[in-house]
Design a binder for these strands. Structure first.
Lengths: 241, 241
DNA sequence: CAGTGGTCTAGACCACTTT
DNA sequence: AAGTGGTCTAGACCACTGA
């Protein structure tokens, strides 16, 4: 195949398949055609297709299972937690948070928020407050901002329960949005009186601040989040390679 | 090629090449044999060799340059900084630290240190204290613990200068040790009086604590490090995928 | 047993770098 | 012009899964 000044063929194939998934043409859970079939449909060799599939798998957009086939990734609670929740206990073991919603409001996006979420000024957002416990003890205060357009059913009484699991599962089930990437910045800050009360600490206690922006498969921002972690018994863990 | 219960051939090739680099048989900067030659020397097909080389490149152990050849990775200051220094300014731009050594002592490894560095109890370590400035302002207090065996020339008068650049460059030049991986855990903590004075802050001010353990190509731990960052003007940035 | 992805091989052609 | 890695192709065989 030719490639005058364009990108490599495997990258083009990767982009085509990413687009099918991002648009919902290929919904989560779908079994993809077998590799030889998909390769001939796209007009590329099996080797080139495999190279594109390997990259999609590394981005967690598909799952390949030997003997079964290749599937569009399902956003499950356990999977989203493993991918995006970096908190560990002091021995390094992963912990599972229990979550309670402590407040929901709806209003226009602030200047900074609107820019980062790429909303028109004044567009509505939901603000969600949650308290997350690790091993039964409140350890994380969390404030989430999401475009209201992505969360229409939020005023319903059942909404809080949905918000107590990872909201990425809701995104996928209700809108076919697959969350694939997040950027986090970390800092340290003194607790306010409200934050301190929620976490059972004294005002001014040092907290770890985790600010996150989350993107879907199409590269659109879909969530802003600030998490305040009490780090007496837990750590935020990363590996650098 | 057969593979009864063993690992894939490309993984075996990767292990062989990693070993050659880790042992110093292939020193940093070396030009590797051309792919067809290396493949036939190892008794594998070019495709299998390329798969192993791709993995080595992702681990930053080699660099491949089209038209020139494949080289064992050189540890440069800029490269080590880009790979392991996650601090950004508030706009997200990378910053380059200037570093001053504020203290060096030598003594036996403490219990916890000895375990993590896999030293025999009582084995000597160097403890290095540094103050790092960003844009001319002191922002990071750093304490580094390294096995004394890896840093024999530390009492020489020129040592402090060496310690003012990334010490990974010294590791590579003096011992052929290539640092490939680090684990970091983050937390928030109140500044002590000495830490506060060094950073121009009030005692008790919240600081971001970054604890790092660093490993070489052979998987041996070669450094413990604690960095205390003033996060009024900077952030620690990570991407989750 | 049939069908899937995982591994391994072999070789052609292209783009880039250096001589 | 010669040599390198990057791309793309084509096909054989193996390991795993589920009917």
């Amino acid at each position: 195949m030719r490639r005058p000044g364009a990108s490599p063929l495997y990258a083009q194939v990767e982009a085509i398949l990413t687009d099918r998934i991002a648009r919902g043409d290929w919904p989560p859970g779908l079994l993809l055609p077998a590799e030889p079939d998909l390769a001939s449909e796209l007009g590329v060799s099996p080797g080139t297709l495999r190279r594109a599939l390997a990259r999609l798998e590394r981005r967690h957009l598909i799952e390949r299972r030997q003997g079964r086939g290749t599937f569009v990734a399902q956003q499950t609670s356990a999977q989203a937690l493993g991918q995006f929740f970096r908190v560990r206990d002091l021995s390094g073991k992963p912990v599972r948070p229990e979550t309670v919603v402590t407040g929901i409001t709806t209003g226009p996006a602030m200047g900074e928020e609107a820019v980062r979420l790429r909303l028109v000024p004044g567009e509505k957002v939901h603000r969600i407050e949650r308290l997350r416990s690790l091993n039964g003890v409140p350890q994380i205060v969390e404030r989430i901002v999401v475009p209201a357009a992505l969360f229409p059913g939020l005023s319903l009484p059942l909404a809080p329960q949905r918000l107590e699991t990872e909201i990425y599962v809701h995104y996928q089930q209700a809108h076919g949005i697959i969350v694939v990437r997040a950027e986090e910045t970390l800092s340290a800050r003194a607790a306010s009186t409200e934050e301190a009360r929620a976490l059972g600490r004294e005002p001014g206690a040092p907290l770890l601040v985790i600010e996150r922006i989350t993107y879907d498969a199409a590269g659109r921002p879909v969530e802003l989040r600030v998490s305040l972690l009490d780090t007496r018994d837990h750590r935020y863990a990363v590996e650098l390679v």
